[in-house]
Nucleic acid binder design. Sequence first.
DNA 1: CTGGATCCCGAAGGATACTG
DNA 2: CAGTATCCTTCGGGATCCAG
Lengths: 149, 149
Amino acid sequence: MTARQTAQAQKNFPAAPEKSVTAAKPLETVDGAAHCKATGQVLDLIGDKWTIMVVGVLSRGPTRFNEIMRAVGGVSHRMLTLTLRGLVRNGLVSRTPFATIPPRVDYELTELGRSLIEPLKVMSGWAMDNGAALEQAKARYDTAQSSEQ
Amino acid sequence: MTARQTAQAQKNFPAAPEKSVTAAKPLETVDGAAHCKATGQVLDLIGDKWTIMVVGVLSRGPTRFNEIMRAVGGVSHRMLTLTLRGLVRNGLVSRTPFATIPPRVDYELTELGRSLIEPLKVMSGWAMDNGAALEQAKARYDTAQSSEQ
DNA sequence: CTGGATCCCGAAGGATACTG
DNA sequence: CAGTATCCTTCGGGATCCAG
C-alpha cells in the first residue's frame, strides 16, 4: 500500500507506443502509461493481504469491527485496524461509531466502495475460470525445473 | 506474492452467509469464500510492485529483457528477473531464448496472459473513473485528521 | 469493544559483483 | 545481453500491552 506509490511517483513511461493504437485494437492491449498507472493505483489500494477479504465481508452489509475480524479469520487486531483505516481514508468505507457502552463501530461500503465490487467480480471470475490453468502451469514449471537439475 | 498464500492456505471462511443470497442480488455482493479466495489468488499473481507494469509492456508484443527494463523504468535487474520468472511459471508469459551472441531472450504474453488483459482493463477503467474521487477522499481525510489534532 | 503504541522478526527488494 | 548469488536495508505484519 506504500511501496508502489513511491516508485510510481517519479514513474513516467518513457514513450507511449507511437501513434496511439486506441482505434485499431482497443481491447487487445493495455497500452499507455495512464492505464498502467491507474491500475497500479488500485492495486495499491486492494493489493495488500487483507483489503479484499474485508471488502468481501462488507459487501454483505454494515459490519462491526469484531464481526469483520471473525469473518475474515486470521487477521490480527492491528492489521484489521490499519486495513479499515485505509479503506475509510480512501472513501471506500464509512465508519460510524455509536456512543454506547461498550462502544460499537459499524463499517459499511460507501457508494464508491460498492462500485468497486463489479471490477472485483470480474477479477474473481477470471480467477475462477483460469485458476486451474494457473495451477497446471505452476505444476508443469516446477516439475520441469526439478527434473532438469 | 508469497505472504498471502500462506495465510490463505488454512483460510476457510467460518460460515457462509446463511441461505446463499446468490439468487437475490447476484451483482451486488461479492459473497462467498470462493470469490474472495479466487480474487486473492489473482492479487497474489499481479499484486506486487512490478507485474502489471510488465504485463502492460508485454501487451504490446514480444519484448526483450532489457527493453522491458527500460520501458518499465525503475525496476531493478534482479526484480525484473524474478517478476518474469513468476509470470512464466504461472503460464502467463512465454520465454524464448535465442542462442545468438550476444544472447537474446524474448518474453511474450501467452493466450492465458492475454486473457488477463480484459480484467485488468476493467480495473484500470474503474481507476480512471474513480481516481479523482479517491484523491479527494484522501485529501479530505488527511486534512480532517491534522486539523482535529 | 474499539483503537493506539511498542517491540520484534522475517520477507521483500535494491545494489553490486560475477558467470556464460 | 541475460541471469545468478550475496549482502544489506527497509518494511509489512504478528504479538502484546495500554487506553477510552
